[in-house]
């Protein structure tokens, strides 16, 4: 019995460790490599101790100024997409939570069904339309597209959260003199904050790293950082790995920090509904 338990525990620990290595290794590799002198990045055996250098960051700054412009674009697009998705999902989630009819049920189903279509199917016919509307290469179109892609998931998620907010609160607020937008803003949104954070994290991670839409709908003005990174990887002059890892590190950090900060709410958010509040 005892031995068995020790073995089980050891097994669990090992599994967790493996999972940690599996998920952390690429991140650690990218970050450490960005500070390694070029020759040591792929040295076999790997160099665990090295004199850190900022050369790659300096080169990145000098040779790939466009990357930093891309970061600015990514930031604008990501914030825009998150704000749009959160607003739309909250409003739609509220409707699905508080009202019911056959048509609403059907529309929720179609929302989810639409999500199953591969993005590329949507993007190609959109390309000429976006061009004709003069929206190509704008932050606006990317924000809208990214938000659109998460509104279905976001709506379902927000509905689950809003379902847990007693309807009496809306009623109390409307008796207290609140109009519907005020109810949403002052009552629903603060109470559904974990859900909003969950939706925001999804959208932020997606929008920050998204490639396909950005590739199709931007040229120069709204070009996002992942596009610049892809140019570094596929560079027909051979890859400058150190600079690529420096760029990847810069690209990675904001989202990593954001997700870590929001982690607490996120876990609470994703498990909501499992137990009644």
């Amino acid at each position: 019995m005892r031995v068995e338990r020790i073995l089980v525990n050891a097994g669990k620990t090992l599994a967790v460790l493996l999972l940690l290595v599996w998920s952390l290794f690429p991140i650690v590799f990218i970050i450490t490599s960005s500070f390694k002198p070029g020759r040591e990045i792929f040295a076999v055996p790997p160099q665990w101790f090295f004199a850190p250098t900022f050369d790659h960051y300096i080169t990145l700054w000098q040779r790939w100024a466009v990357f930093f412009h891309g970061l600015l674009n990514s930031t604008i697009v990501t914030i825009g997409a998150a704000a749009l998705a959160v607003m739309a999902s909250t409003c739609a989630g509220y409707v699905y939570s508080r009202y019911s009819s056959r048509w609403l049920g059907a529309s929720l189903l179609s929302l989810i069904a639409i999500r199953l279509i591969p993005p590329i199917v949507v993007t190609l016919p959109l390309f000429p339309i976006v061009n004709n509307l003069g929206l190509a290469d704008t932050h606006f179109i990317l924000s809208v597209l990214y938000a659109t892609f998460f509104v279905s998931l976001g709506t379902v998620l927000m509905r689950t959260f809003i379902d847990q907010i007693p309807r009496e609160l809306d009623e109390a607020a409307s008796m207290d003199g609140a109009t519907l937008p005020v109810v949403l803003w002052r009552i629903i949104m603060p109470l559904a904050a974990p859900g909003i954070i969950a939706v925001a994290v999804f959208v932020v991670v997606f929008a920050w790293n998204e490639f396909l839409f950005a590739f199709i709908f931007t040229s120069t003005k709204a070009k996002t950082a992942p596009l610049v990174i892809s140019e570094m990887i596929g560079s027909i002059e051979g890859v400058d790995w150190g600079v690529l890892f420096a760029a990847s590190t810069i690209q990675l950090l904001p989202v990593l920090i954001f997700v870590m900060l929001m982690n607490r709410y996120l876990v609470a958010g994703l498990t909501a509904g499992a137990t009644k509040g």
Binding site: E168, L169, E171, A172, D176
Partner: peptide
């Protein structure tokens, strides 16, 4: 509701 000059105390307090 908000214009009926009414206040309500709910069973669940709300």
């Amino acid at each position: 509701s908000r214009d009926r000059g009414i206040a309500m105390v709910f069973q669940s307090y709300a």
